[in-house]
């Protein structure tokens, strides 16, 4: 019996070596280990084994079963491993992927959101106003003289009813000051503005601005400077140089234009005019107070700063866009660059 078991083992392991598919391995399993298999048949003969040999034969039987079973498992394992390997054979991952759609936000949306997020971190909230405005909100209340050229029909779009398309988002300053209930006022207003300009590489008749206004007791030039320096460093990088040039706007006094120093490799640094700002002119508070009929914005007690900048220009500078018309053409090849 012992020798029969030994030779069964030898035979089985030899047979196993020649098998290379699942079906023949299953047949092998049935042949040796199945209910009617050869090892099963041998173990059935255990009853005939004399008692003094039972221990040895039992041990041998286990040894042979173990050897055949593990041999089978190793073989099955190897076969599975080969199949797994074959399942990725010929896959060339250097081939291009299936295109996942890459949508994109318009660069103006991105720049506007950058400005909004930055200013919100500084405690500004959003305000809005109509784009079709009254002359009062766009000019009068902003201390613009009655015969100021900007009011001209050659410069500003009008509707037949005498209202106009706002020439700047500064009108939102007035809209806000007319309606707020308490100090401080700390708002930003991104939005479209209109000027009666021929569209060319640097001009659009409809463009985008962002306006900011901070009014409280004791707002000073120092607040204005700190806020704008922080803002431009957030937008253009921490080392950005910012300079303030005195300028003139009817609704701020003093007024400044802001230049940002642009550094480009291989080019001389340039100062780029990027925004206008100033301390709210007391005449603006006086106009608003007249409309409100209260003293919340008494020019004797409140001060404020305001600034405004063109987002189109900001986008052009940040992205190096050479023709402003790209921003309204919406050529997919252009938009894709900002995905």
């Amino acid at each position: 019996m012992l020798s029969e078991l030994d030779s069964l083992k030898t035979e089985a392991l030899a047979a196993l070596g020649a098998l290379h598919d699942e079906a023949s391995l299953e047949a092998f399993r049935i042949d040796y280990l199945g209910k009617k298999g050869r090892l099963t048949a041998l173990s059935a003969r255990m009853r005939e084994v004399p008692p003094e040999q039972k221990k040895d034969v039992g041990a041998k039987l286990n040894e042979v079963r173990e050897a055949i079973t593990s041999g089978l498992e190793v073989h099955l394992g190897a076969l599975q491993a080969a199949k797994d390997a074959a399942s990725v054979a010929g896959v060339d991952l250097t081939l291009p992927g299936r295109p996942a759609d890459r949508g994109s936000l318009h660069p103006l949306t991105q720049i506007r959101d950058l400005a909004v997020r930055t200013l919100r971190r500084m405690g500004f909230t959003l305000a809005d106003g109509p784009e079709i405005e009254t002359e009062w909100h766009c000019f009068d209340a902003l201390n613009t003289p009655a015969d100021h050229p900007a009011r001209n029909e050659s410069d500003t779009f009008y509707l037949p009813d005498g209202r106009l398309l706002r020439t700047h988002t500064s009108s939102v300053q007035i809209r806000t000051l007319e309606t707020v209930k308490e100090l401080p006022v700390r708002i930003i207003a991104p939005g479209a503005a209109y000027r009666r300009d021929e569209i060319d590489a640097t001009h659009l008749s409809v463009f985008n601005q962002i306006e900011a206004l901070y009014v409280d007791h004791d707002v000073s030039l120092a607040d204005l400077k700190g806020t704008l320096e922080f803002f431009f460093r957030e937008v253009f990088g921490p080392k950005t140089a910012v300079r303030f040039r005195p300028h003139f706007f009817p609704f701020t006094e003093p007024s400044f234009e802001i230049d940002v120093k642009l550094e480009a490799k291989g080019r001389e640094d340039r100062w780029i005019e990027i925004a206008g700002c100033g301390m709210v002119d007391p005449a603006v508070f006086a106009s608003v107070s007249k409309t409100r009929g209260d003293l919340l914005f008494d020019p004797e007690t409140v001060t404020g700063f305001a600034f405004g900048m063109g987002l189109d220009r900001l986008a052009m500078i940040l992205h190096g866009i050479t023709d402003i018309r790209h921003l309204i053409d919406n050529d997919s090849r252009f938009l894709r660059q900002f995905a």
């Binding site: 919100r120 500084m122 405690g123 500004f124 909230t125 959003l126 401080p184 700390r186 901070y214 409280d216 000073s220 030039l221 120092a222 607040d223 400077k225 700190g226 806020t227 320096e229 922080f230 300079r243 303030f244 005195p246 006094e253 003093p254 007024s255 400044f256 301390m279 002119d281 007391p282």
Partner: peptide
């Protein structure tokens, strides 16, 4: 305020310290 503007213009903003105070903002 026009006189203040003249002073600011001549002194220049370089001498204005940058001040920054965030304000709680209610959306």
């Amino acid at each position: 305020v026009d006189l203040v503007e003249e002073v600011a213009r001549v002194v220049g903003l370089d001498r204005v310290p940058a001040k920054f105070a965030a304000v709680m903002a209610q959306g």
